[in-house]
Amino acid sequence: MAAPSAWSVPQLTYGITPPKVSMAEPRRRSVAAAQSERIRSLPVDALVVYDLQDESSRTDVERPFPFMRAIDPLDYALDYLEVPQPKVVYRSVSGHDAASLGAWLERLRSAGGATVLVGAPSRSQSVSLRLSDAYAVHEARSPDLPLGGVLIAERHAARGNEDQRCLRKVERGCSFFISQAVYSVIASKNLLSDLVYRCQDEGREVPPILLTLTPCGSKKTLDFLAWLGVEVPRWLQNELAHAKDILSTSIETSVAAFEELHDFAAQKGIRLGCNVESVSIRRAEIDASVELVERVAKILGR
């Protein structure tokens, strides 16, 4: 399933979330202008815009931060942001029907973007559209729209089949993958190793992968990462929780993790890039995301 010739899988991306629906329009424009100015200056190949969904059905644990609905990520990407980088826009498909998803995909395709389709956060949630159905809509309505998938090392640790899931998604049209936030080098190495050897056994190429790094600037953010299902090893939880500067410590840890995983991937012939998240409204964490991009860019030889 070929993507348009203009599309090249990015090696370094920057991920953001749209403003909340409750934010007044003038404030939305002000936020978008500030984000656009920052993004234009970054050495990134593409911008990732997330589609926020309420994941409370995935766990009985109380959410550390209340869920607040955000505006449509495609509306934000196309109507608010003014950046030269192509956009990779997430779409949570469970609350949509085939017709609305098809129109959404066609709009994104005409804008020269790419998408990552995401299913329901849990099997218990009632859905209008399953992820497999969404892939069928993509095939029928916008087969040349570059399609990405989500890769989760923690799911592989629990079920041992994320490598198989990855390749099934390749068969449905996915040409690249973006991971969940990475704090456990071992969990990510295990997944990459299983994936590369499965591809060797099946005579396949390993798809390009973007590992997601996200700054952690507070104990509450650390709790939120755990709530999302991100594995933060116990020793690292201790280091972050007791650090004099938790944000700086998380940056150093993330840089070291990516450097180790990048070296490991290079030895295995995996094209491994990075997606740096900036999903906080705190100025210090926004600045930290910029620092993280610049340091990862150096690892990538930029």
Rank of each mutant, 00 (worst) to 15 (best):
A33H: 09
A33E: 14
A33V: 02
A34N: 08
A34K: 13
A34R: 13
A34P: 00
A34D: 11
S36Q: 03
S36T: 03
S36G: 08
E37F: 01
E37C: 02
E37W: 00
R38H: 04
S41N: 14
S41T: 14
L42T: 08
P43I: 09
P43R: 08
V44Y: 02
V44H: 03
V44C: 05
D45V: 09
D45I: 05
D45R: 04
D45Y: 07
D45P: 05
L47S: 08
L47C: 06
V48W: 12
V48M: 12
V49E: 10
V49P: 10
V49N: 11
Y50E: 09
D51Q: 03
D51P: 04
L52H: 11
L52F: 03
L52E: 14
L52V: 13
Q53D: 15
Q53A: 14
Q53H: 12
Q53L: 14
Q53G: 14
D54R: 10
D54A: 10
D54T: 10
E55P: 00
E55T: 00
S56L: 01
S57F: 01
S57M: 07
S57T: 15
S57N: 09
R58P: 01
R58N: 07
T59D: 01
T59M: 03
T59V: 05
V61H: 13
V61R: 15
E62F: 01
E62G: 00
E62V: 11
R63Y: 03
R63Q: 11
R63A: 13
P64G: 06
F65R: 05
F65C: 02
F65N: 05
F65K: 02
P66S: 04
P66G: 05
M68Y: 11
M68A: 15
M68W: 05
M68S: 15
M68L: 14
R69E: 15
R69P: 04
R69A: 15
R69H: 12
A70M: 13
A70P: 00
I71N: 04
I71P: 02
I71E: 02
I71C: 02
D72P: 02
D72L: 04
D72T: 05
L74T: 04
L74S: 10
L74M: 08
L74D: 08
Y76D: 06
Y76Q: 06
Y76A: 06
A77I: 06
D79E: 10
D79V: 00
D79R: 07
D79F: 00
Y80E: 06
Y80H: 13
Y80N: 01
Y80L: 09
L81F: 07
E82S: 13
E82L: 08
V83S: 04
V83I: 15
P84V: 10
P84S: 12
P84R: 12
Q85Y: 04
Q85V: 13
Q85R: 06
P86K: 09
P86C: 08
K87M: 11
V89L: 07
V89A: 07
Y90Q: 12
R91H: 06
R91M: 01
R91D: 00
R91N: 07
S92Y: 06
S92D: 00
S92L: 00
S92H: 12
S92R: 08
S92T: 12
V93N: 08
S94K: 09
S94D: 12
S94T: 03
S94F: 15
S94E: 14
S94W: 11
G95K: 07
H96G: 03
H96T: 08
H96C: 05
D97P: 10
D97T: 14
A98I: 04
A99S: 14
A99K: 13
S100P: 01
